[in-house]
Simulated scan of single mutants.
Amino acid sequence: MSNLPTPTVLLSRYFNHLKMNNWSATTISRRDYVLNKFITWSSERGIESVTEITPESLAAYRRWLYHYRNERTGKSLRFCTQASYLSTVAHWLAWLTEQGWINSDPSTGIELPKEEQRLPSSHLTIDEIETLLSSVDLTTPTGLRDRAILELFYATGMRRAELIALKLDDINHESGLAMIRQGKGRKDRVVPTGKRALGWLMKYLHDGRPALLDDDTQVIFLTSRGNAFHPVTLSQLVRSYLSAAGITKPGSCHMLRHTTATLMLEGGSDLRSIQTLLGHEQLNTTQIYTHVSIKRLREVHDKTHPGAKDRPPQSDTE
């Protein structure tokens, strides 16, 4: 094909297509990273045009992903990461085929690696979460803010980005509901805050937030500079409280989300309700919490398994 645009130009057009179809900026940014990596990998191997991408070169790329090791940690890519990289490349190639930039899709028939069935990261016990919450210094505006943040994470199980994006109008103080706008998958949902979390949020809004407010903003949680939190900064903040409380389990914001789901399941909640609370699109995403709710499983096992009872061994003379 004469006058074929470079892969970088075609990539830019692809992203414009995604934007026109209302793909989220986060997803586009992630695909930008993955596809530019693929273009660089291809160029290093003499592939300068999308028409030169073949099933054989994609098979070589898959092998490269499998053998790749992080220079700093020496760790390999998880199979779910490899599958994500390959599916992203495949989607771009399918679009190039639909647009007529290449005659046939070289990714057709490519086999993605099976993803691992992993348990969620660590979760806190009820005692640990109460220790964490009570460790906050409530004599300062930032302390009131931090208690409200931890309480809201624990009560709602919302994602880090969802909490950062909360606006004043997103909280219905009468009904005790929080509106999460444009969560993962660009979907809105409403979640209960719980009375305790709502009480701490109200105290922060009344006694803490005005001292942090610089410019007029609707964002609820503000840094000491009056800005919205950066995701990394919020994770560091939560991690600092976990460390101060003597909790060494790995994780921060997302661990509180796992804690919410696990403790609710152990308390008798059904999976559908937890799915709605967490904003999972598929129920099988929520079902993974059944693997960590060992307390419930042990209770059922003790009540129903005939071998669970403490029976004395039978004597040979009996």
Rank of each mutant, 00 (worst) to 15 (best):
T142R: 11
M158S: 01
I129W: 05
D207A: 05
Y204I: 02
T125G: 12
G199D: 00
T88M: 08
L212K: 00
L198I: 08
A155Q: 02
Y204D: 01
R78N: 06
G157M: 00
Q82L: 07
I180C: 04
T125L: 14
R160K: 08
A178H: 02
A178M: 06
T139P: 02
V136T: 06
Y85V: 15
T131G: 08
N70C: 12
S122Y: 09
R181K: 13
E174H: 13
L138M: 00
G199A: 10
I149F: 05
L144F: 02
F153D: 02
M158G: 01
I110Y: 14
Q82W: 06
G74W: 07
P141L: 06
G157K: 03
T131A: 13
F79M: 15
K184V: 09
G194K: 12
A197M: 06
E130A: 04
E116S: 11
T193W: 01
P192Q: 01
T131V: 13
F79A: 12
L132V: 09
I149L: 03
R196W: 05
G74R: 08
V190Y: 03
D169A: 11
N103G: 10
L198S: 06
L132Q: 11
L86Q: 01
G109H: 13
K75P: 06
F153Q: 06
I164E: 00
K75W: 06
L132T: 15
R69N: 07
C80N: 14
L201N: 02
G100D: 08
R181V: 11
L163F: 04
P106W: 08
F79T: 11
G157A: 04
V136L: 01
I110C: 03
Q82N: 02
L150C: 06
H91A: 15
C80G: 05
G208Q: 02
E111I: 15
N103H: 03
L201S: 06
L163Y: 01
A94G: 10
D105E: 14
K114S: 12
T108G: 14
L138A: 10
G176L: 12
R160E: 06
E116K: 08
R181E: 04
D105G: 03
L168V: 10
Y85H: 13
T108P: 00
W95H: 05
R72E: 10
E115L: 07
E151M: 00
H91W: 04
L201G: 05
D188Q: 07
D105V: 02
F153E: 02
I110W: 01
V89H: 13
R145W: 03
K167H: 09
R209C: 07
H206Y: 03
L163S: 03
L205T: 02
S175R: 08
L201I: 04
L133P: 15
R78E: 13
G74I: 08
D127H: 11
M158D: 01
L119S: 09
R78K: 13
M202I: 05
L168S: 13
E116T: 04
D137G: 08
K195G: 11
P192S: 09
R69D: 05
R181D: 03
S135D: 11
E71V: 07
T73M: 10
P106E: 14
Y85A: 13
L150H: 00
G109P: 13
H123Q: 15
T73R: 11
T125K: 14
T88C: 15
T97V: 10
W92D: 03
E162Y: 10
L205K: 00
L166D: 04
Q99V: 08
N70H: 09
A94F: 13
L166F: 04
V191S: 03
